[in-house]
Design a binder for these strands. Structure first.
Length: 883
RNA sequence: GGGAGCAUAGCUCAGUUGGUUUAGAGCAUCUGCCUUACAAGCAGAGGGUCGGGGGUUCGACUCCCUCUGCUCCCACCA
């Protein structure tokens, strides 16, 4: 049957993926084998696959497939994250497009919409992962808001609350007055905005009345002066020495506030005098805490001035700004105003100017947990790859702040705190327990007297339990509970593949939760991938439109091609500059593999044909090379050098197997291949497919299935990975010399315009290459006869070149230009002489000979003698030419 | 502003406790080939002194200091 000349991934990918699913190869159950476990970093449930996911999940699939083929019980747990902020934003936008405002519907109605959205769009990304070939155990698919997982989250909250580690506190949040919600730092877009800096006089108070002296304060927000709690100067600022300890009056409202000193103020900005408004600026808030200043909040949640402002009550903050400037001018308080550009935060969703606003939030104390989490990494019980991230990790863990775990959203796990009518609160896993706790405080309370906190928990507060809860959702919150069978078997997991950006948000916190609830680390290795960027180094993003659609890419180049393209240029921790040409390279490699298969398939094995020496030697050589490669690849994997492992295989297959091995054993046109060689060739091919399978699952399965008879239910993905046998590395080096000789002859042919079809004779003036390897040279360089000689006969003319200290000589005198030849030799001699003098300089240095290790010194002596031999031979050849 | 990291061929990267023939790979480039598996191919070739400067050492791409440029994380100046 005719095999098409090009590999068509469309004909194989879906076919084999369903075959794998049907045979349940991805599914894992605990057994007596050693487990190898990866939990997927759960993508947003409503997300779509982007290039970062491609890289990340390809790496995980390579690791898991390889583990499966090395006899481990491999389990890759997939799932999705409810991603409160992102998902809620999408649902709000969708409702808005239907004319429904979130503020007009109840929490229950909103959640019904959200779940509907999740059912509709959730899991698209998981379907896309299947296209990539991801061998996840889909029976174990989890969602961070599955009922059992949510229960674990609530129990975790209760656990830490009862331990005294969760508390309520005041914090400044990014308030969006239009969206009527707090937004996270990530959702605030800072834009350079032209504004004005107003210089306002604050008169020194003399018994509560304005004196004649004043100081000038610069501010961009004059409408907040009524909330000022102090005016602040730098303690070492000489200019203000005379007014230290005095008090000033806020203009217009004549409220007396102190002058305080804090080194936060920079003396060279503005007037060196800063107004402190704890309620409306995060830095001022912190200064306020240091100096125990009162907090005076004059803005309501709409961004309008409230009655505490005394003046301009009910005005919007921007309208108030204009009006107060006018009032200050009229009152003679405004010294000057100047144009000023500042970074203003805008809400990503409503584009409203963000208002820093104080609010009550829930926090978790991080102190002790971070010490433990740091220790796992410092003691290398958990390895970060690359390890440069240890520094970053340490720095963060040593400076960790308490974790704000509440979010003013509805989509997520609702905080299990209930408020009593008198303001007291109880925390319990459910309302019934909350009521009974409440009744201990006040026996008369009924359930309708309790009000549950409206906020939900930060998404990370559920995903930090992920490696535990995917196996045993009932474990979080209960350190003393015995683990179930799955958790006992699969936990700790082995490797985690994720992005460095979430090292703290997620990785560190999983370590904390693992330590708290399982008394053990959640994973042993954390492989941190780089960011996928475009050719110009820009982050791939939707708004830039520079991210290709992975699904389209796979259609064009095949899943295997895309996987190879991504992996070839992605060592751990370094960013991937994505370019479609890389994927093209991957596709070309698939095609190369495909065509080698076509060649082998076109041969007939003949039992009666004898085995030529070159084939016998080629089998011996490639067998050795394969064993050596297995060792190299194993080493690469141990060190998580995934792209190096792939590159090694790429070259092994393309160069060594195709360009050398197959060409050497290739019979003359129409001739059969002897049986022994044919079988060895098939075996090599199968081993290569197995080695390549973790990287290129589809094409390797297709060809492995076709190269020999297979039973239904057999698959390459459950085969044993080839192991290294004994081999002679000496022989590999000798074969390398033979290959170099061939390349040298080919190069000479091209330089002299001798067709590859014209046979030549060859003289070798050294017996360093074993005779069996002559057979390679005969075939691959089209040599009719090789004359091994101890010394080049003086009556021969032609061209020579050297491989190590072996001199090779082609008697092609008629084609030789003596002057060119001499010039070439002179250049070589000059190079070698320079090299030799460097070596001699080292060797004549007594300190070197004394202090360098013996083998290094010996190596230098070998360099010296080799260089001298080469120079001697070249000089002799030069003499010959001069005759 | 605080912290971390990077700088090696045109591009993307290796270079594993400083020493294996005066730096390696892939891609790209150039030259010659439609050689009956593959032009998504075959054969061959050229190309860097390792960002600049200083230091330690018998010896530095590799260690230290410094300058320059870039990236990331955190905090963001009224």
């Amino acid at each position: 049957m005719e095999i098409p000349a090009k590999y068509d991934p469309a004909l194989t990918e879906d076919k084999w993926y369903s075959y794998w699913l049907k045979n349940k190869y991805f599914h894992s159950e605990p057994d007596e084998r050693e487990p190898y476990t990866i939990v997927i970093p759960p993508p947003n449930v409503t997300g779509v696959l982007h290039m970062g996911h491609m890289l990340n999940n390809t790496l995980q699939d390579v690791l898991i497939r390889r583990a499966r083929m090395t006899g481990k019980n491999a389990c890759w747990v997939p799932g999705t994250d409810h991603a409160s902020i992102a998902t809620e934003a999408k649902v709000v936008a969708k409702l808005k497009s239907e004319g429904i405002e979130k503020t007009d519907i109840t929490r229950e109605e909103f959640l019904a919409h959200a779940w509907e959205w999740k059912e509709k769009h959730g899991g698209i990304i998981l379907e896309q992962l299947k296209k990539l070939g991801a061998s996840c155990d889909w029976d174990r698919t989890s969602f961070t808001m599955d009922p059992e997982l949510s229960e674990g989250v609530i129990n975790t909250f209760v656990h830490y609350y009862n331990k005294g580690l969760i508390y309520r506190g005041v914090r400044m949040v990014n308030w969006d007055p239009e969206g009527q919600t707090a937004v996270s730092d990530e959702e605030v877009i800072h834009k350079e905005t032209p504004s004005k800096l107003y210089y306002i006089r604050y008169y020194i108070s003399e018994n509560g009345k304005p004196g004649k002296d004043y100081i000038v304060v610069a501010t961009t927000r004059p409408e907040t002066i009524m909330a000022d709690a102090a005016v602040c100067i730098h303690p070492e600022d000489e200019r203000f020495a005379s007014i230290k300890g005095k008090r000033v009056l806020i203009p217009l409202i004549e409220k007396e506030i102190p002058i305080i000193e804090d080194s936060y103020v920079s003396m060279d900005f503005g007037t060196g005098c800063l107004k402190i408004t704890p309620a409306h600026d995060i830095n001022d808030y912190e200064i306020g805490i240091r100096h125990k200043l009162p907090v005076n909040d004059i803005l309501d949640k709409w961004g309008k001035l409230n009655e505490k402002a005394i003046i301009l009550v009910g005005e919007d903050r921007f309208a108030a700004r204009k009006k107060i400037v006018k009032m200050l001018t009229e009152g003679g308080f405004l010294e000057k105003e100047e144009a000023y550009t500042s970074q203003i935060g805008y809400s990503e969703r409503t584009n409203a100017v963000i208002e820093p606003r104080l609010s009550l939030q829930w926090f978790m104390k991080m102190g002790d947990a971070s010490v433990e989490a740091l220790r796992y990494v410092e003691e290398e019980k958990i390895k970060l790859i690359p390890d440069k991230y240890r520094n970053t990790y340490r720095h963060w863990m040593e400076n960790v702040k308490d974790w704000c775990i509440s979010r003013q959203l509805w989509w997520g796990q609702r905080i299990p705190a209930w408020y009593l009518p008198d303001g007291e609160l109880v925390v319990a896993a459910n309302e019934a327990e909350a009521l009974s706790l409440a009744q201990k405080i006040n026996p008369g309370l009924k359930s309708e007297d309790l009000n549950q906190d409206p906020d939900v928990l930060d998404t990370w507060f559920s995903s930090w339990l992920w490696p535990i809860s995917v196996f045993d959702p009932s474990k979080p919150g209960f350190p003393d509970k015995a683990p179930n069978r799955d958790l006992a078997y699969y936990y700790p997991t082995n490797d985690l593949v994720t992005a460095p950006e979430i090292l703290f948000f997620w990785v560190a916190r999983m370590i904390m939760a693992g330590h708290e609830f399982c008394g053990d680390l959640p994973f042993r290795n954390v492989y941190l991938t780089g960011t996928v960027r475009d050719k110009q180094g820009r982050k791939m993003s939707k708004s830039l439109g520079n991210s290709p659609d992975p699904i389209e890419l796979m259609k064009l180049y095949g899943a295997d091609g895309v996987r190879v393209g991504m992996l070839l240029c992605s060592s751990a921790g370094t960013d991937v500059l994505f370019d479609e040409s890389q994927v093209e390279q991957g596709r070309n490699f698939s095609n190369k593999i495909w065509n080698s298969y076509r060649l082998i398939k076109s041969w007939n094995a003949d039992e009666s044909a004898h085995t030529p020496l070159r084939s016998k030697t080629a089998v011996k050589w490639f067998d050795a090379l394969l064993s050596q490669s297995v060792e190299v690849i194993n080493d690469h994997f141990e060190k998580f050098r995934i792209s190096d492992a792939l590159m090694h295989l790429y070259k092994l297959f393309w160069d060594d197997y195709c360009a050398w091995y197959l060409e050497i054993i290739k019979p003359a046109q129409g001739e059969p291949v002897d049986k022994a060689t044919y079988e060895a060739t098939i075996q090599f091919f199968e081993k290569l497919m197995k080695l390549l399978h973790p990287f290129m699952p589809f094409i390797t399965e297709e060809l492995w299935q076709n190269i020999a008879e297979r039973e239904e239910g057999e698959s390459i993905m459950i085969c044993k990975m080839p192991a290294a046998g004994n081999y002679s590395s000496e022989f590999i080096i000798k074969a390398e010399q033979a290959k170099q000789a061939i390349a040298g002859i080919r190069s000479l042919r091209q330089a002299k315009g001798i067709s590859p079809k014209e046979p030549l004779e060859l003289y070798i003036t050294d017996n360093a290459i074993p005779e069996e390897l002559y057979s390679f040279i005969l075939k691959m360089a089209n040599i009719s006869e090789i004359h091994p000689l101890l010394k080049k006969p003086s009556d021969l003319n032609g061209s020579s070149f050297m491989i190590d200290t072996i001199e090779l000589f082609l008697p092609i005198a008629s084609l030789i230009n003596k002057e060119e030849e001499i010039a070439k030799i002179d250049a070589d001699i000059a190079h070698l002489t320079g090299f030799l003098s460097a070596v001699n300089k080292k060797l004549s240095n007594e300190k070197f000979v004394e202090s360098a290790p013996k083998n290094v010194v010996e190596m230098e002596f070998k360099k010296k003698s080799d260089a001298e031999t080469k120079i001697a031979k070249l000089s002799a050849a030069r003499e010959e030419l001069l005759k």
